[in-house]
Design a protein around this nucleic acid. Structure first.
Lengths: 344, 344
DNA sequence: CTGAAAGCGCTTACAG
DNA sequence: CTGAAAGCGCTTACAG
């Protein structure tokens, strides 16, 4: 028996093995309803012919894709730029690869959301969403994505009220913000600046809220917000340099490590010593914190774990028809380094 | 006409519009063979019924997936860790999203390559590969992946001889390595150390070869290779600190920015001033170079462009049946910063 | 310009 | 334990 030029199908295998196509199917899918003699023969023919199941046909027949879609909505063309996002994707991929699912990646700008034909050519069993923009925008994005009628996991933001078939995996950014505030206050600092970029990310809002909440319990603590056009290194350096020309805080709080390092550099260039004259804190602790001098006190994010859990919850929901938990919150931890002063 | 519970198909649309299914198909796919009256009516019904084409059925019928597979072979569980890889993926996604293709991501360890059932459930029109390991290993990986019989683009490594249907997109890492060597030699330095991690990446080999080649033309120039178990910050700091205990080079060359920054820190901790007593150079210039003090002289990589081109070449090859060019090499440029000494 | 027929490769009932 | 029939939703020839 010689293979023809076209790819062999179940039919070819069946004929060569002297059985029917559905017996071949049963062998492949290990339904257990086939005698071992037949199974062995069929497997041998499969080997000989180099038969490989058509995934496309299976997907079509069973209307199941074994595929999860990841949509990142971001104004930045370089949407994977943040190492946190990267970590999430890695965790998700690692989970999905392990159970034979694929991940499909798509990045889109918020402005393209309505016009662009997002819906063309995407067909996944479930979706993972990294949204951005104001909360109204994000709600609109979410509602529109729900028309796919697949389970959805939101990363790093709580599920809005009255929304079904959606769960959320996030970390305790509020708690992380609180931990930073408490640590800084414990060093005796009271005068804080916070770098807040214009682009709205839910996690940033939570970090800020956590910081303000913890700070509000400390008498005399004051927070000044430095608005930044974007998160770029040059932007942050410019904003901080300008502000330091007029007054001096005791600590600058970055909502992520990149911004914190830029602020640190701006201060150091003006001759300020970190942490003696100015303390600096970051957030995430993934790739950057070690690259500054001194190393950055930061909050350890669990991007990989968040991605991994997102995959696990989604697959579980696919099986049972519903999410076990609507809101999964992972803990974070403060990691002290030399950019802040330590007690005892 | 009220939509039933199940999703409407071409058949439903056809019936409601009083035409045949293939007319509906022609309208959707804009074949231009439909009278505008009919087309308008059909489009209206599509709207009313909320009909959406089944991608799975189309993929099956046309045996085309509109999907590109990206496979990263890396021993690191966190395979997206390197910002260069991240840039490549972003560029690829941006290109593919623009033309209605999806990207499917899979990460795998070299050790899993044979045993793990890589082939299950992947069905893509083409593949982009980021391989790792020795050149024999990579060749084996490539050959095994060729059994999919789809066009393949290799990132950052040349196509081995006698391999067909494979093209390569890379940057001029050899030239980048040369540029670093020439710049350092021009500052008067002759005594170099290079950090070389155990894991073999083709781009690293090219950078090293380029450096050695340019250096060999300069009388008195010497290179010492510091072997490192891996690329981690702590590992590099340990290796460099140890070596600096015995002797002092004039410059340390990192094969990427991460390693360069770690080396810089090790030197600074021993009281060496950069660049006066020791110069340091990196490679990539993507996210890290600004985060060190002083900023890092580095070679600018074009990860985004490489990913984008990879997508473009692949889609072109899908159309014409062959690659226009087997080996696309993008230029790199040296970016000077304060970690090296500059001439007037 | 429009339609009736056939089939892509697989699997789910349903019989034997 | 095994098989003949039917169909998932779409589109490509082929006729009218």
């Amino acid at each position: 028996v010689k293979a023809t030029s076209r790819k062999p199908t179940v039919k070819d295998v069946a004929k060569a093995a002297g059985v029917s196509p559905m017996t071949v199917s049963n062998v492949i899918n290990a339904s257990g309803r086939v005698s071992s003699d037949t199974a062995i023969r069929v497997r041998q023919v499969i080997e000989e012919l180099g038969y490989r199941q058509s995934t496309a046909a299976r997907r079509f027949r069973l209307s199941k894709q074994w595929m999860i879609g990841l949509l990142v909505v971001d104004d930045n063309l370089s949407f994977l730029g943040d190492p946190f996002t990267t970590e999430v994707i890695t965790g998700l991929t690692n989970y999905l690869t392990g159970i034979g699912y694929s991940l499909t990646l798509r990045g889109i700008r918020p402005s393209q959301f309505d016009t662009h034909d997002l819906f063309h050519g995407i067909e996944t069993d479930a979706m993972v969403l990294l949204l951005s923009g104001s909360s109204e925008e994000r709600l609109r994005q979410l509602k529109s994505l729900q028309s796919f009628k697949v389970p959805i996991v939101l990363i790093q933001e709580p599920v809005p009220p009255l929304v079904t078939s959606v769960a959320c995996i996030r970390q305790d950014d509020f708690g992380g913000g609180s931990a930073i505030a408490l640590h800084l206050c414990a060093t005796g600092a009271r005068d804080f600046w916070m770098l807040v970029p214009r682009a709205v990310w839910p996690a940033f809002e939570a970090r800020r809220a956590g910081f303000e909440n913890a700070m509000s319990a400390v008498p005399g603590a004051r927070l000044r917000v430095l608005d930044c056009e974007d998160e770029r290194y040059e932007t942050i350096v410019a904003v901080v340099s300008e502000a330091l020309g007029h007054s001096r805080p005791e600590a600058i709080v970055g909502l992520n490590d990149q911004m914190a390092i830029a602020a640190m550099h701006a201060a150091q260039r003006l001759g300020l010593s970190v942490p003696d004259e100015l303390q600096v804190t970051g957030f995430n602790g993934l790739a950057f914190w070690q690259f500054s001098t001194p190393h950055l006190t930061t909050v350890l994010s669990q991007g990989h774990e968040i991605g991994y859990r997102a995959g696990a919850e989604l697959i579980a929901a696919l099986g049972s028809g519903r999410f076990k938990q609507k809101d999964v919150v992972l803990p974070v931890s403060l990691r002290l380094a030399e950019s802040t002063r330590h007690m005892g």
